[in-house]
């Protein structure tokens, strides 16, 4: 299970966001370059159609692979009231022939993306990860070197935190508090609920860039 919120920011303000995150998290950023392959089951396989993601971390000297399954979001009145999305998520590291395995099992490539950016992993009431990345599409199959941005000038910001059925309300509260620190630069909401860029971003970015993030917003 995980809690998640997403938002978007103009690429010109990403540097300011990085300064702010550096100040808030107190850790160094990790560079991010992930080739993401989304696979779907062929029509006759499974009682319902299913989807699985293979993530290849290209930032490592030897690329590493992870299988990720994102399940349904939590529903009901309780889920409506919290400002973050709570969903099931399972991950497993796999050997490099994972794509061959899933093709053999009856999965087909639906689409692939290349995420390039950075991430901060830290603890702010709960362990969290913020990723800031530009999402790119491939013009040719698996051609990560020739990827082009899906939305030029805009980057995706995602905050995720592992949670369980026992602690998700606390994790969601911690995440909500953290998001408030970022509010002048971007608005984070449940995935699928797009809120666009925030009008205060330019002023907040200018302020951050001028004092290097030393001032608390």
């Amino acid at each position: 299970m995980e809690c998640v919120v997403q938002g978007i920011i103009e690429t010109k303000h990403v540097e300011a966001l990085e300064i702010l995150l550096q100040g808030l998290c107190g850790v160094h950023r990790d560079s991010l370059r992930i080739h993401e392959l989304c696979l779907k089951s062929v029509p006759n396989l499974g009682l319902v159609s299913s989807e699985v993601r293979l993530l290849c971390d290209l930032e490592q000297p030897e690329p590493t692979w992870t299988v990720r399954h994102i399940g349904g979001a939590m529903r009901g009145a309780g889920a409506e009231q919290i400002s973050v999305l709570v969903r099931t998520m399972a991950e497993s590291k796999v050997s490099k022939n994972a794509l061959r395995l899933f093709y053999a099992l009856g999965y087909k490539l639906d689409h692939e993306l290349l995420r390039v950016g950075f991430a901060f992993q830290f603890n702010s009431g709960a362990p969290m990860t913020v990723t800031v990345s530009s999402v790119n599409k491939m013009l040719k199959l698996h051609a990560t070197d020739e990827a082009v941005p899906v939305t030029p000038g805009i980057q995706l910001v995602e905050v995720t935190a592992p949670a369980s059925s026992e602690n998700y309300t606390e994790v969601a509260a911690a995440m909500k508090s953290f998001c408030e620190y970022l509010a002048p630069l971007l608005h984070l909401s449940k995935p699928g609920v797009s809120t666009g860029v925030v009008p205060t971003a330019a002023a907040a970015a200018a302020s951050l860039m001028s004092d290097g993030g030393g001032t608390t917003l």
Partner: peptide, 15 residues
């Protein structure tokens, strides 16, 4: 070769 968590993923995929 995977982590033992892959069993949970296979279960969730229902394929």
């Amino acid at each position: 070769e995977a982590e033992s968590n892959i069993q949970m993923i296979m279960e969730k995929l229902q394929s």
